[in-house]
Simulated assay, not measured.
Amino acid sequence: MSARRGVIAILTGGGDVPGLNPAIRAVTIRALREGFQVIGIRRGWAGMVDIIRDKKADNSNNYQILTREIVNRAGRTGGTFLHTSRTKPSHVKKADIPEHLQDTYLEDDNDLTAEVLKNLEYLNIDYLIPIGGDDTLSYGVRLCQEGVKVVAIPKTMDNDVPGTDYCIGFSTCVTRTIALTNNLRTVAGSHERFLILEVFGRYAGFSALLPTMAGAANRCVVPEHRFNIEKLTELLSEDRMNNPSRYSIALISEGAMFEGGEMIFENRTTDAYGHAKLGGIGDLVSDEIKKISPKFNNGKKVSVVNQKLGYMVRGGDPDAIDSIVPMAFGNLALDLILKGLYGRLVVLKNGRYDNMPIEVVTSSKKLVDVKQFYNTDRYRPNYESFEMKPLFIMTSEL
């Protein structure tokens, strides 16, 4: 494979979000116009691991040549047409080693970075643009350290990639959360119940805090502050009694923790990045609130409408912001390549597009600044000091 100015590879890793396809489209359209060839790596880092370096091999499941026609067709849709995975090439379990490498890698945990580097060379890839969250991009940091020319684009509906105020997918997540909550409030109001909604957010509570700040819920609990279930019940009971329709709403981050407790997992199996699948905190909160509710409702139990929003907030087409920001991020990535700048993360900071060293992804954590933005007594956002704040209020700085 050859091109006048080189070959650029794009991949998407981790969870899908609306806005990935517009980012792929932006990179591809600009790159082709500038004289590059563009390869789409399929299934995230898994595609880079599974490539068979043989001209006779069928690698169509691992990569494809991208054209204007392909990306224009997909560019207005949600998800990622390149598909995705949570593969981490530096930590591949023996059972997940590709068949053609099983005689070479025999450990329980294997580093296949050498194979990835050979595959990049085999495809004549000059530049690599990974689009993902801190897990996906952490391996981009590793490849950068190995000499690969990497320019990264941040994506995650949790909005928790360090170094940037905004990550692709977050606006649509907030938009969907508000819309779905408003749909369900008619159910809660009809039956005079509490409405408990579990939303994404393993370590960072942005996806619970911002919809609450926008008026979707009365209260929210976030991973950054352990909550007292009796206090939450009392607050929701107060909200319910003050509402003419006799209902109240709380958004619960999936990583939220009871006082003295830990995160709630669906099971203890972990992905390649060591993360067990979260899920169940909304169920536990609902059960406990129902049990405690008579204490704050004249001895009568209040029932709960309990819903895990989950994939409903990450499905479908991107909203306006998740159509515009990926376009800008993709073009920013091409600007950096054209300038000969690598090892960078394209970012939005204080309302302006910029770039940062990619190492910021692994050198810090991006969490809600509880002191500034969260009222720990009232379990709701702080509604003050908005002057000169960026669009989504909370920045990447702690």
Rank of each mutant, 00 (worst) to 15 (best):
E254C: 09
E254P: 03
E254I: 01
G255C: 05
M257S: 07
G260R: 07
G261Q: 03
M263A: 14
I264L: 09
E266P: 04
E266L: 12
N267Q: 09
N267P: 02
T269L: 14
T270R: 15
A272P: 04
A272M: 10
A272T: 09
Y273K: 03
G274E: 08
A276T: 03
K277E: 14
K277F: 12
L278K: 06
G279K: 01
I281Y: 00
I281Q: 04
G282W: 00
D283N: 15
L284F: 11
V285D: 01
V285L: 06
V285Y: 00
V285M: 02
S286A: 15
S286K: 07
D287E: 15
D287K: 15
D287T: 15
E288H: 13
E288T: 12
E288W: 08
E288A: 15
I289T: 09
K290G: 01
K291G: 11
K291M: 13
P294C: 03
P294H: 06
P294D: 08
N297E: 04
N297T: 07
N298A: 13
N298Y: 09
N298T: 10
G299N: 03
G299W: 01
G299C: 06
K300W: 07
V302N: 01
V302Q: 02
V302S: 00
S303Q: 14
S303C: 10
S303P: 08
V304K: 00
V305L: 11
N306K: 15
N306P: 05
Q307L: 11
Q307W: 10
Q307P: 03
K308E: 11
L309H: 02
G310F: 01
G310H: 07
G310E: 06
G310V: 02
Y311M: 11
M312F: 14
M312K: 12
V313N: 02
D317Y: 13
P318K: 00
A320V: 14
A320T: 14
A320W: 11
A320K: 13
I321G: 03
D322E: 08
D322L: 03
D322Q: 06
D322R: 04
S323N: 12
S323C: 10
S323Q: 08
I324P: 05
I324D: 08
P326C: 07
A328E: 13
F329R: 02
F329E: 02
F329T: 04
G330V: 07
G330L: 05
G330Q: 01
G330H: 02
